[in-house]
């Protein structure tokens, strides 16, 4: 299987900053891979995801997704990349119904000057059902709990029918049973549909078993990568955790 995500010597610097949040990252992710990205706070995990989908432009180096340069084909590429955003805060009076927010994921897929059809709505409701939130379809998102809203965001990303799914701390706000449900769902999607996934977490225990590769980021650099168990037993990662404990 060919690479769907390729980063070649990529650095990303935020405006007004001098130190890159990502530093000379070279990375290739194949179709159907389930990659977990872990690392301490500020390691550059979210920056990595947003550099991949082009929301943050890489300062140097090349990012290619589906063989196309994100810098020049960002809009087209993003239509095929689902993104579950981290720490999404929402006003309780936000006037959007859950089903409409889930449908918004398909906006790019449906395309300009086209309207959602019966099939689009069926996909919305089926994904809401998969996440156990079909009962909330007519509720305003501002009225949902943090966990319920997180599931709406996951359903939104799945409804996009992405070829690549980027998940930034997707288990945030989820209780244990919901974590299991979402984890199983992601595993099924990866195995049955060969959906390429990049899963970001600061919690090692949150990584689904189906994950094929784990990448450890620290201070914007990849410090270690491989199978989860190998990575966890490496001395670099051990040092990182020790450092983290000292800071705590």
């Amino acid at each position: 299987m060919g690479a769907v995500i390729e980063l070649d010597n990529v650095s990303t610097i935020y405006e007004g900053e001098r130190i890159p949040s990502l530093h000379n990252i070279t990375l290739s992710i194949d179709e159907g891979e389930f990659v977990a990205v872990i690392g301490p706070n500020g390691a550059g995990k979210t920056t990595l995801l947003e550099t991949i989908n082009g929301l943050l432009p890489a300062t140097s180096g090349t990012v290619r997704v589906f063989g196309k340069n994100v810098k020049t084909h960002g809009l087209e590429i993003r239509k095929k990349i689902g993104y579950v955003i981290q720490n999404f805060e929402i006003d309780s009076l936000t006037p959007f119904l859950s089903k409409d927010v889930v449908m918004m994921g398909r906006t790019g897929r449906i395309g300009l000057l086209r309207f959602p059809n019966q099939r689009d709505w069926e996909r919305v409701f089926s994904n809401m059902q998969l996440l156990g939130i079909e009962g909330f379809k007519d509720r305003a998102v501002g009225k949902l709990s943090g966990g319920e809203f997180q599931k709406v965001l996951i359903a939104r990303a799945l409804t996009q029918e992405p070829d690549v799914l980027l998940l930034d701390e997707p288990f945030a706000n989820l209780d244990v049973s919901s974590r299991k449900r979402v984890s199983d769902l992601l595993t099924t999607l990866n195995i049955e549909r060969s959906l390429t996934m990049v899963f970001v977490s600061h919690d090692i225990n949150a990584i689904p078993e189906a994950c094929t590769r784990t990448i450890v980021l620290d201070q914007g650099r990849i410090v270690c990568q491989g199978e989860l168990e190998t990575v966890l037993s490496s001395s670099i990662v051990q040092q990182l955790w020790q450092r983290g404990k000292k800071h705590d």
Binding site: N53, L55, L75, E76, R78, K79, K80, I81, Y83, I85, F88, T94, F96, D100, V101, M103, M104, G105, R106, T107, G108, R109, I110, L112, L113, F115, P116, R156, Q160
Partner: peptide
């Protein structure tokens, strides 16, 4: 009317709309 879905996606959250391929 013609761009209702793009506009509502943007009004809900601009970054997420951009991430879904909306200009």
């Amino acid at each position: 009317i013609l761009f209702y879905k793009e506009l509502t996606a943007m009004l809900f959250h601009r970054k997420l709309a951009e991430a879904s391929g909306v200009n």
